[in-house]
Write a protein that binds this DNA or RNA. Structure first.
Length: 629
RNA sequence: GCCCCCGUAGCUCAGCUGGAUAGAGCAGCGGACUUCUAAUCCGCAGGUCGCAGGUUCGAAUCCUGCCGGGGGUGCCA
């Protein structure tokens, strides 16, 4: 279906359009002051007062030393909105100076027609910016768990939002694939394989996860315990026992450090084992990412190991340029100056034993992302506990010039899109009864399993294959939506019952609303109703039609709101409102049995537009959708 | 000690740059299906916005102090 594109470049958002008109009126009333004023247009909270309102008169009156109601009157007098609104009179000025506006039905219809174009009001920008999104953040040899769910889902959704807005997005999976912990498990695997207790080719992630924990345990020293024993004189026997354990652990640790050195030198035997760990872990990770309906692929892999060759150069560069300095044998970047961010804690980039730290890797990552990949904005979807770390790294990177693109006048934007913890229903961190992390795969399975039960119950006539497909989509959508629909920074309580309740603000509710838009067209086909609605004049009569129309027009601003605040919740809230408006409309405005053919065609067009916005919005959020459920 | 985040209805959460009577959902109560999927819709009830000051014509929102909860804090990642 091809429609003329001529009008699609202009906005159909009443807030923007009215803003322009108000700005002109304000400028006419207060020359020299009004030009930069904020027209303060917003949707009316109370439908009986109007559709939109401007609150501009109050703050402006203060600056001009006028009475706000008088200023409001003057603005209304200069206001030219006859083509958009019902006549605005003195009676529409309320309270201290609110100006209430009612959209004309024909204007509303015209705006909707303008929206009804392929890009739905979000044309690609002439010069896309480059946005790097750091997401997923898995560690080698460890099972993915509910914490990775947030980093993966929120990060991918933010990436999708920028993609929808036409920006160039580069996903970066900063895999924890390097350093001493990885060397520990590599060494452990070598030993197990060497002793014939392990077939590396048949290695599973479960086994890897177990050996990782074992290696960690073996290398854990008893220093603290020994100190306590000595301090309180708990006896030579216990001291000897602990000493022996400690010595053993130190031996393991020394072995791990040697393995790390071998790994860094790409010594073939060690490297081959590491490579195997990498393959097994990333295979499982990418499978989970696929099942989660994300666009995270192998191309996003940019693990810590990929920076290992750059760390020495980073540190040397920082020292040479006087950005880093020595302190107690370590190298630090001081950030306490007001111009550096005023952070009391310095950023450590090299230990006194010469080893690098994760801040060193992150400095190298900022440098690559901004200076090589050309990021205008780098977004880190990492849990909130890393707040200080990122404040330090960002400040240090800016100080070092790593955050500035070659030739750019100022640094790119570095942002930590921090998210809260996932809690169990007891309010404590989400774990199994035995205190283990819940495996991500198990979590997905249970969501899908529960969804399958409900689908079978609600729609028993579906075939086995379709039912399973629908359950997969519904379960995943429910899980992701639960993660996306709250404020990012807050901890959230994980509850299968709530996310899969299929009522209220849930993923399944949105999917259901989309299904209901689509079923109208299936039924129309069955009934032989002509689907010639594409250019049908839109008729806005019923209050439910009007509410739906107003909701539809807000779509682009909702998506842009997510990009600005990095809050997927905004789009969730918008879609929930749209789904609700559609449900009310669906209930009170029959489409196929509309009173006239004109009205039916108008409503079909409204349904089609709603379906497209819902589908586009769900795809932007990254929720899988279904035709029936 | 210092720093950061959170505190809104019984529960889970919204409330965008300060704006009119603080909104949803769940749970509770009451209605609406021979009619496009009732996984829905409509209505009722439910709140000293943690507390106390301050700024303002106007504060859940901004500032200060306190209380409660969580997290972080120089050589782990």
């Amino acid at each position: 279906m091809i429609r003329p594109m001529t009008e699609s470049t202009t906005t159909f958002d009443p807030v923007e359009l009215l803003g322009e008109r108000f700005l002109a009126a304000i400028a006419a009333v207060a020359p020299g002051v009004g030009e930069g004023a904020d027209p303060m247009i917003s949707g009316s909270k109370r439908a009986e007062l109007g559709d939109f309102q401007s609150n501009a008169a109050m703050p402006l009156a203060k600056r001009l030393g006028m009475k706000p109601r008088e200023l409001a009157g003057a603005i209304v007098e200069k206001l030219d909105v006859a083509d958009l609104c019902e006549p605005v009179t003195e009676a529409d000025i309320a309270g201290p100076g609110f100006i209430n506006l009612r959209l004309r039905a024909d204007a509303l219809a015209g705006l909707l027609a303008r929206m009804d174009a392929p890009e739905l009001g979000m044309p690609a920008p002439a010069e896309p910016r480059t946005i790097v999104v750091d997401l997923c953040g898995v560690n080698l040899a460890k099972q993915m768990h509910v914490g990775h769910l947030r980093a993966t889902v929120i990060g991918d959704t933010l990436a999708r939002v920028f993609e929808r807005l036409g920006e160039k997005v580069i996903r970066q999976n900063h895999v924890g694939d390097w350093g001493l912990p990885i060397a520990m498990v590599t060494r452990k695997l070598q030993a197990e394989a060497g002793a014939g207790r392990l077939d590396l080719e048949a290695l599973t992630l479960d086994e890897l996860d177990r050996l990782y924990k074992l290696a960690q345990f073996e290398c854990a020293g008893q220093g603290k315990g020994l100190a306590i024993v000595e301090k309180f004189g708990l006896g030579p026997k216990i001291e000897a026992e602990l000493s022996a354990k400690h010595a053993e652990a130190m031996e393991h640790l020394a072995g791990a450090k040697a393995t790390l050195v071998a790994l860094q030198a790409h010594e073939p035997g060690v490297y081959a084992v590491w490579k195997r760990i990498y393959e097994v872990t990333m295979g499982a990770c990418l499978e989970a990412c696929g099942r989660l309906h994300t666009r995270i692929t192998e191309a996003a892999n940019a693990g810590e190991s990929s920076y290992s060759e750059e760390l020495r150069g980073v540190v040397e560069d920082l020292v040479a340029r006087g950005v880093a300095e020595e302190s107690d044998g370590a190298l630090v970047v001081r950030l306490d100056a007001a111009g550096d961010g005023g952070i009391a804690e310095p950023c450590l980039i090299r230990k006194s034993d010469g080893g690098f730290l994760y801040a060193t890797t992150d400095m190298a990552a900022v440098r690559r992302r901004v200076r090589t990949l050309g990021a205008d904005r780098v977004i880190y979807t990492v849990d909130a506990r890393q707040g200080l770390h990122f404040r330090q790294v960002f400040a240090a990177a800016r100080k070092a010039g790593y955050a500035t693109k070659p030739g750019a006048s100022g640094p790119s934007v570095l942002e930590h899109a921090a998210f809260g913890m996932v809690l169990g229903e007891d309010g404590r961190p989400f774990k199994t009864r035995s205190g283990e992390n819940v495996k991500l795969g198990d979590l997905l399975d249970e969501a899908v399993e529960r969804a399958a039960r409900t689908v079978a119950e609600k729609n028993p006539e579906l075939g086995e294959g379709e039912r399973r497909e629908i359950a997969e989509a519904v379960g995943i959508a429910a899980l992701k939506y639960a993660d996306l629909s709250g404020e990012r920074i807050k901890d959230y309580v994980f509850s299968f019952d709530r996310m899969l309740a299929f009522e209220g603000n849930t993923g399944p509710y949105l999917l259901y609303a989309l299904v209901r838009t689509r079923s109208v067209f299936r039924k129309a086909l069955e009934a032989g109703v002509a689907l010639d609605y594409a250019d049908a004049p839109i008729v806005i009569g019923h209050p439910a039609e009007k509410a739906l129309a107003l909701e539809l027009l807000r779509y682009p601003s909702a998506v842009r709101g997510v990009a600005a605040a990095l809050e997927p919740m905004r789009l969730c809230g918008y879609l929930y409102g749209l789904a609700g408006a559609y449900s009310s409309f669906y209930d009170s405005c029959h489409v196929l049995k509309a009173e006239s053919e004109g009205l039916r065609r108008s409503r079909l067009r409204l349904c089609a537009l709603t379906a497209r916005v819902l589908a586009d919005g769900l795809e932007t959020l990254g929720l899988p959708t279904v035709e029936r459920m």
